[in-house]
Computed example of a mutant assay.
Amino acid sequence: MPHEVRAVVAAKKGAPVEVQTIVVPDPGPGEALVAVQACGVCHTDLHYRDGAVTDDFPFLLGHEAAGTIEAVGEGVTGLSPGDYVVLAWRAPCGGCRSCRRGRPWYCFDSRTAGRPMTLLDGTPLTNALGIGAFAEKTLVAAGQAVKVDPAARPEAAALIGCGVMAGYGAAVNTGRVGRGDSVAVIGCGGVGNAAIAGACLNGAMKVIAVDIDDRKLDQAERFGATHTVNSRGTDPVEAVRALTDGHGVDIAIDAVGRPETFRQAFSMRDHAGLLVQVGVPTPDSTVELPLLDVFSRGGAIKSSWYGDCLPSRDFPFLIDQYLYGLLDLGGFVTETIALDQVEEAFAKMHRGEVLRSVVVL
């Protein structure tokens, strides 16, 4: 029997989001019905609302979520009603050429639910990142639901589903930060601070946080930054070089995704250093670099997709790090809100007032 639940819908480009009643079907083969307990308000949801991702309106927003399994469809193994899960927007298929080569974090055919959730009039909804979890219940592919320790508070656990995983993975999985490395992170929002936390947990000796907002730099110190640079009035490249004996850092992480921050990260690397791009650029962004510098500086430039994570491996690990007191997930939660406060949360995000607002149901 279909389920009528409250959810946050972006009806048209740029319009304020609305709480509407939607219809969620029972799970079919390979699917799971999840009762959502918490869902973080991520910048990607704002991109969807503004039509910057696709124009397939109306959207069911929300993708950074934790909850419990309510029902599973035919053929689902490893999940049962009552299981506590974090939802992943990448669920490796196991059969594409990337998965067959042992690189499931680059899966080209990631699984999502096969049937749409709809408005009451039957209009299909496009789920943000294949999830749609600003809702009392959501339907996902079973592989998107990753079991984790139920001792983790939902509002903290939810953040593993996107921002924290993206930032932590950018440092640990993509950047391969190791003991003694020096790291610079440009942009100290949720993703950037997760990169800082990941770098510290993996043994970085020096972690330099770069931002234009002193409030965010103060937060970065909470997550382990050893040095901070306010780039509003300071050349961040020169400042990072001054903090590294003139050499630059081993790994520079751009968690903003603007052409200027990309160029800064490129230039603040040490010889043969690594640039990791995890901030999401706008579709019209371009960057120009002197080809001789690309060649002569050596090293590498790598994009980090979802922190190059394998959710079934990385989600439980990060939850355990949180429960052991090693990863301060609670520090990312600025406020908890209700479904009807998501539009206000977008405004706070735009003003830089929050790391994460988290909808709690």
Rank of each mutant, 00 (worst) to 15 (best):
D328F: 11
V41M: 09
A52G: 12
C96S: 07
E31N: 06
S296T: 12
G180Q: 01
M1Y: 14
S357K: 04
V278I: 04
E18L: 08
P25T: 15
R263K: 10
L33R: 04
L274R: 13
C39L: 02
F223M: 13
P2F: 14
E155S: 02
L243C: 00
R49S: 12
F315E: 07
G94F: 04
W105V: 01
M268D: 01
G82W: 05
A88R: 05
A66G: 05
L129Q: 11
A65D: 03
E238W: 00
F108R: 14
Q20M: 13
G299V: 11
T123I: 15
G175K: 01
T234R: 10
G40Y: 06
V76N: 09
V280R: 01
A204T: 02
A338P: 04
Q277M: 09
P25V: 15
P16E: 08
Y322G: 01
R313G: 04
K302I: 06
D45F: 07
P316N: 08
V191Y: 01
G75R: 03
A38D: 09
M349Y: 10
E288W: 10
S182T: 10
V333D: 12
L159T: 15
S303N: 12
L361H: 10
R179Y: 14
E70S: 07
A345D: 06
A338S: 15
G62F: 05
L289M: 13
G67V: 08
V41C: 07
A204L: 07
R100L: 03
Y324S: 13
V8L: 04
R100K: 03
C93Y: 12
A338G: 15
V210H: 00
E4C: 15
T44M: 03
G40A: 03
L292P: 03
T336M: 07
V359T: 08
T282E: 05
G352I: 03
I160D: 15
P29G: 08
T261D: 11
L129V: 09
A113H: 12
I22Q: 01
L361P: 02
R100C: 01
G203Q: 01
G122Q: 07
P104E: 04
F317W: 14
L291F: 12
L129I: 08
R297Y: 02
H43W: 04
V34M: 02
S303P: 10
D320T: 07
P124D: 13
L243Y: 00
R232S: 01
P283M: 07
D314L: 00
R111S: 00
R97Q: 11
T77G: 10
K216I: 00
P29S: 13
G114R: 12
L326T: 13
A10V: 13
C39V: 07
G352M: 05
L361G: 04
A338F: 12
Y106R: 13
V85W: 03
G190I: 00
G352K: 08
V358D: 06
M268R: 01
Q219G: 13
E136F: 06
I251E: 00
A220H: 00
A141W: 13
E18N: 04
L46N: 06
V342Q: 05
V280N: 03
